[in-house]
């Protein structure tokens, strides 16, 4: 192969795993992919068939919000909410809106979360799916507002609310407004919960900071994908604070499970089936035999 074409393959690879929005439910078109964990190289098609999980070592690749819709929600049932709200620049941070625009183009989303209703194996749910390809999935006013509206919609429809988190935390550029989104989503979750409705939090890689310290951690069930990084403070900050080396598995899903913070870890391949079962077991009227 000519050197030129080799280089162009690398270039394509650097673009990462963003879904091509022109082709519905498609994965990137790169021919080969190298697993960042076990370094094995395999056909990208093989990876796609495997729901973006390394066939060799089970490494779970990050997914875009739309990819997750395609593998989780029953085909043709998804209806997106609130794609008409846009980020303003309340603190007037230079070039903030330009960055938002670039990520919006890249992901096809108006902000770092996709919300909507749909069915999971026939069960009606409202979902919020965060996308770490959009400003690291960070939460500002629009993310907080979209999630809050989705929770309110779930309350109105009397259906379960399921969130897939993927976020570096609160968004710096919106300052204390971002912090307050933690409280805003929480008051909405409390209402949803008081109606006896189910909330499942599915933590995917990464779920940290203000998102970890709000809705992500208060599901009726807290679920995670294997090896996902989940934690409040950053590893580097902790190492500098406590001046000791942290274990390799620190803040992984497995670490959290061992410390009693998670109900279960579900492999991506079984996520849809298991969550559908969970929803089915929480159907209203579950105690009608009494």
């Amino acid at each position: 192969m000519a050197i030129k074409s080799l280089l162009s393959i690398n270039k394509k690879k650097q673009k990462g795993v963003i879904v091509d929005r022109n082709k519905e439910n498609s994965f990137p078109a790169d021919l080969m992919t190298k697993c960042p964990e076990c370094k094995k190289i395999y056909l990208t098609k093989e990876l796609e068939h495997n729901l973006k999980v390394c066939p060799n070592c089970d490494y779970h690749y990050k997914m875009t919000a739309w990819e997750r819709v395609s593998i989780f929600i029953d085909e043709g049932t998804f209806e997106a909410f609130d794609d008409n709200i846009r980020t303003s620049n309340p603190l007037k941070f230079p070039s903030y809106l330009e960055k938002i625009e670039i990520d919006s183009q890249k992901t096809g989303l108006n902000e770092a979360v996709l919300t909507g209703k749909g069915k999971v194996k026939g069960e009606q749910v409202v979902v919020a799916i965060m996308d770490s390809h959009f400003r690291m999935g960070s939460m500002g006013s629009v993310v907080g507002e979209k999630i809050t509206r989705a929770i309110e919609k779930a309350t109105e429809l009397q259906v379960p609310f399921i969130i897939f988190t993927a976020s570096g935390g609160a968004r710096m550029q919106e300052g204390v407004l971002s912090l307050m989104q933690m409280a805003k989503t929480s008051v909405a979750l409390k209402r949803h919960s008081d109606q006896g409705l189910l909330f499942i939090s599915v933590m995917t890689h990464p779920t940290t900071g203000g998102v970890s310290a709000s809705f992500a951690s208060v599901g009726d069930l807290n679920i995670a994908e294997p090896q996902a990084l989940i934690g409040f403070a950053g590893r580097r900050v902790i190492e500098q604070t406590v001046r000791e080396k942290l274990p390799d598995d620190f803040q992984t899903a497995e670490f959290l499970l061992a410390h009693g913070q998670l109900d279960a870890i579900f492999h991506r391949k079984e996520m849809r089936d298991k969550l559908a079962t969970v929803v089915r077991l929480h159907r209203k009227g579950g105690i009608s035999h009494v």
Partner: peptide, 15 residues
């Protein structure tokens, strides 16, 4: 931001 705080669920406690 400490090791023990993470082990005992700092995020969950705040949330």
């Amino acid at each position: 931001p400490g090791k023990a705080a993470e082990e005992r669920g700092q995020s969950e406690a705040i949330a």
